[in-house]
Design a binder for these strands. Structure first.
Lengths: 214, 214, 214, 214
DNA sequence: CATGAATGAGACTTCATTCAT
DNA sequence: TATGAATGAAGTCTCATTCAT
């Protein structure tokens, strides 16, 4: 994973071209940690600043507002999922493989990043404006990607056709989200998400299969 | 479902014995509506008051704080789900029937109550204290109930045994939560959730089935 | 001391002519107790009501406002001191006797009424408007009475003349106030104030004496 | 008495290290003025802020709460009296001199600071928590210092022994407090307190004297 | 006369954001 | 770039007072 993941799409027009290109990153990392621990609203900008080892004002050199911190977090980390997903989906031949890929990616990317997982599954929903105006479209885009896999599988004859692709997409995403949330809020044991991915994939794939189970 | 579902278990020890016993209820209903529309944090107590047609201070005669409003909402409406679930599960013979029951109830109860659905799937997560200290245990309790159904099905031979009951429970809950969330945030077409319940149930049941699909 | 001490001078125009003429009194007594315990501002009207065993609204049938409660307390209990003082002063022959009378009355009246003592020495000052607009004039009137005793003693040759009567009055009053306050805030041992009166009187009388001490 | 008397011992751990080291001082001065004029409870924090020429929020950079403002006022200004008293008492040879010193200091320190005098004699008592938990102990400490002077005088044979040192201390303090209060609430004529100190001292000293007056 | 649920003005305090240094 | 003291708008909640019953 190169610097590309810290692409500057977000918060367009930021000033610092960054000699030490890591200050923005430090802030983002600190935000993830503190947001996960205390929740978005309960977290003070000054706490993120202290945790990042910068002055309060410095945050505003890299982010437009506290909300932008959350948006940028989403942008920088989650958008990555979409890009990776599209790329990986190409590589798989079967739609079964593609769907399994979706599951593995969504869970695999968060494995080992418990804080990020918690922010995405729990905290992201704390900002309504974000959910409705910003994150929702991204979610939809992601759900569409999943839905296309399902639809493709139906056309190819791999998946049963008596299920709405979009509904399935929502169910798949929700299932993974639910698994991740309880994992993040609970024990968060190592390897838990990877193992979960396989099991959940098995269930969905069998459930969607056009062919009788063996 | 009669008025009894709005029992006043929550916030025990409230003062007013209420000449018109519906003031507390009016506030709760207003809160659900406004929270769904603007989100918990973005909603001002005064907005709930205005929407309920009472004075700001009146809210504090029935609820300890703004947070308590959300807790009570959860208590009064969602806890109901648990009770109903336990009751309904008894009536079903097969575990397939029981699992289908879970799905139908979770979605069915929210059908027609879009605001409530949105509050539960989105807004409830806006209060971290609530999520971690209060709602989480309730969720766990609910998940346990689902897990027990899965476990029972495995023992009876109805369900395949190569899936962790708790993981399945999380996936099932998450899938329904995801479906509800997109429904609440999106079109929320009539009957959508009921139809969804059937389809999602089909997928999970087939996915979990111990017998080869026909 | 007859019912006359609960004369209805205060809060002129009160409605209740009182079948049970003790409700106003109960409220006043409750107010004294609660004010002494928690302070005037920290005391809620509802607390006085509960302590008096009446409804909140009932208080407003007997008193115009919370402030009026304090004013009335002052009126009903302290104004009594002035009246008694004037009466008693007449009976004493010497000015030494008159001054001793002042001391004994001020302390004697509060002896056994610790709550009242605390309200007067401490709580009364919590309402600025009261201090400046209401109590101050009463204090001045009381101080004047003391000053006249001193002045009389000076003219009669009993007291030394090199001390301002008004200053002495303030010092005497303050000394008693200080003794009362520490008594009320502290141990408040029985008989303490009476014994104190004698000692303080001895000091002031010797200090003011025109004749060399024996 | 230099600026050093406004040392910043109080509210330890304040954030601002203060570019212009007088902002805290400005707030304290403004608070003294406004508290004296309107009373503690009737004064709004925003009024203190306006009077100090700072924003409302700035007050909370230097003081934890409105109450802390009063406590700090007490700390910064009154505690000084104790320190000065102990120091000055050392310098006097006779106990007569020491007692006179107490009187002169207590009144002298407030002379010219009418607002402060009013806050201490009147407003300080407006916060019950303050009186009981905070100020009372300080008062006791101060009273003890006076009592020790009296006791010393009795042992040295300067003062008569038929008076409780603690009672005398309370009377002395009260007398000065009473004089100050009426001075602050009333005319507050220049030099009044100094002249008063001498007269009150004369009375108390003669009253306490072990030897016959000349 | 009595009640106590309801009112609503207004206070304290927080904290995201700014800007002079 | 970086800082962090200062700002001030705005929210939650309290509580004296009212008034329909």
């Amino acid at each position: 994973m190169t610097e590309s993941r810290f692409s500057s799409r977000a918060s367009e027009g930021r000033r610092p071209r960054a000699r030490e290109g890591d200050k923005r990153e430090r802030i983002l990392r600190a935000a993830t940690k503190v947001f996960a621990r205390k929740g978005f609203h309960a977290t003070r900008v000054s706490e993120v600043a202290k945790s990042a080892g910068v002055a309060d004002g410095t945050i505003y050199l890299y982010f437009k507002s506290k909300d932008d911190l959350l948006v940028s977090l989403f942008e920088d980390r989650v958008v990555l999922l979409l890009a990776t997903l599209e790329r990986e989906l190409q590589k798989r031949e079967t739609f079964e493989g593609k769907l399994r890929c979706v599951l593995e990616l969504q869970l695999g990317l968060l494995e080992g990043e418990r804080d990020l997982a918690e922010v995405i599954t729990v905290n992201l929903r704390q900002s309504t404006r974000m959910m409705k105006q910003y994150a929702a479209p991204k979610f939809m885009q992601y759900l569409d990607a999943i839905a296309r896999v399902v639809e493709g599988g139906q056309k190819s004859g791999e998946f049963r056709v008596d299920a709405s692709p979009h509904l399935v997409a929502r169910a798949v995403f929700g299932a993974l989200d639910g698994v991740t949330m309880t994992w993040a809020l609970g024990k968060a044991d190592a390897g838990g998400l990877s193992r979960a991915a396989t099991q959940v994939a098995d269930i969905f794939l069998r459930g969607l299969s056009a062919r009788p189970s063996p």
